[in-house]
Structure formats: C-alpha cells, structure tokens
C-alpha cells in the first residue's frame, strides 16, 4: 500500500501560493466572474427558436382551428370576429409555452417571439384577445446590454455587448410537410359539397350533371394547400391528408 503524505512546501512555495490566492480574490472583487446575467438591466440573447409570447397575423390565418385542437393546456379559444371568421385568443394563465400551436398552424399565422416577461394584474387580463395578439405587448425594458454565453474548450464565460436585442424574430413561417387532401372512400361521398364550401383555396370543385344524375367531385392537388379544413368538416369523414 502506498501512503499519500502531506505535500512538503518550502517557504518560497508557500509565499507563492498565498499571493496567487490573494490576487484571485482581489480580481473577483474588482471584476467578478459570474455566470448569471443582471436581468433586467441586461438580457440574455435568446436563440430565434425561443418559446416566448406568441403573436398572431390574421392575414395568414385560415380559421382551421388547428391551434386550438392541438393545445395541450386548452389555452386557445376560437372567437368569432365581426367578419364571421373565427380567430384564436390565448389565455396566458393556461399556456405552457410549448408552441405546439405555432408549429401546427398551416398558414404560419402564429409567430414566436423572445418576449418572456409580460406582467399582468389580474387573471382576466391574461386572456389575450385576438386583436391584442397582433402587436407585441407593452413591456418595460431597462436593458442596455445583451449577453451571450460563450463556451470555449474549458470554460463558460459571458460576452456582454452594448445595445438591445430585437425580441421579435424574423423567421420564415414553418412550411411543414406538404400535404394534399384526398378522398379515401369515394363510394361513401354524399356530394354535400361541404368540402367545397370550406376550402379557402378553391381546390375542391363539384359539377352537377343533371342528365346523368351525378355530381363530379374533384380536388385539385395544385391548388390544395393541405390545410385540412375539408378533412375536418367532411360530413362522411372520408377525406384524409396525404403527403404531396
């Protein structure tokens, strides 16, 4: 067995190590090396995929209800607008910031932001109406510096830059997997034309042939955006989205 003994230092070594310790302490007093940011005076620069406050672009919404269906926290409630169209409202009292809604929106109408610090006075206020989702919320910003975490081979350090990070991200809306609607049980179609009525892209057509007593139904794959509205509304539940 080998015994580990106390290291033997001579006076010179002892002096050297003491001085080094003192200088480190002095350095930390003067220029502390911590890994926390001084929020709210400075802000960490989050990546564009940060899941924060959600903005809404009514121009891109096709009222497909996809977001409200997918929300696991039931935070999205579709509300009728004066135009008779339904648009999402978002209750931040319930939202768990999973951004499933953002990912599910076929039109890219829901947009992520890096805003994570909105304060509310009441629970009621947290129910954000459609019109309030269009513009970023009012937040008080005291930050004058943004911070990046830099990882070099050994150490994690903070890099501070003067200025303000833009919290609104400019990323192209998700394209998703291109899908197209198709009828999987044609013999069960009743030619109610609900699909044609709900399709926003004019992809479904129906032509009545009075003489032969038939209705010719067609889905134009070129025009179909794969939004899935017809699939949801088909009264016989015979339409499916398939990969384009």
């Amino acid at each position: 067995m080998k015994k580990v003994g106390t290291p033997e230092y001579n006076l010179q070594d002892k002096l050297k190590y003491h001085l080094s310790a003192l200088s480190t302490a002095a350095k930390q007093v003067a220029l502390p090396l911590n890994i926390t940011t001084h929020y709210p005076r400075e802000r960490r620069r989050w990546p564009d995929c940060f899941r924060g406050y959600i903005l809404f672009d009514p121009e891109r919404c096709i009222s497909c209800f996809q977001c409200s269906f997918i929300c696991p926290a039931n935070a999205i409630w579709m509300k009728e607008a004066p135009s008779n169209r339904y648009y999402p409202t978002l209750d931040y009292g319930k939202c768990i910031f999973c951004h499933f809604c953002v990912d599910s929106c076929p039109g890219g109408a829901l947009k992520p932001t890096k805003i994570h610090d909105v304060a509310y006075r009441t629970m009621e206020e947290m129910l954000t109406l459609t019109e309030e989702m269009v513009e970023p919320p009012e937040i008080i910003r005291e930050d004058k510096v943004f911070v990046d975490y830099v990882i070099d081979t050994e150490d994690l350090s903070l890099k501070r830059t003067k200025g303000r990070d833009n919290l609104i991200v400019e990323i192209a809306p998700s394209q998703g997997v291109p899908m197209v609607s198709q009828c999987v049980d044609r013999a069960s179609c009743i030619a109610c034309k609900v699909c044609e009525k709900v399709c926003e892209s004019g992809a479904v057509s129906s032509i009545k042939d009075e003489e032969r007593l038939i209705v010719k139904m067609a889905i134009d794959a070129e025009k179909c955006t794969g939004c899935g509205l017809c699939v949801k509304e088909c009264s016989m539940q015979i339409l499916r989205l398939v990969r384009k």
């Binding site: 198709q182 999987v184 044609r186 030619a191 007593l213 038939i214 209705v215 010719k216 067609a218 889905i219």
Partner: peptide
C-alpha cells in the same frame, strides 16, 4: 379503404350519384 400510399396522387376525382 385505400391507404394514402396506394392512392394515385395528382388530381383526385370521383362521381357521386344523385
């Protein structure tokens, strides 16, 4: 009931009797 893969792609057309 055809699985989507079995369906031919492109324009999907069918007729319904009235």
């Amino acid at each position: 009931m055809a699985t989507p893969a079995e369906e031919e792609l492109g324009e999907s057309k069918w007729e319904v009797k009235v």
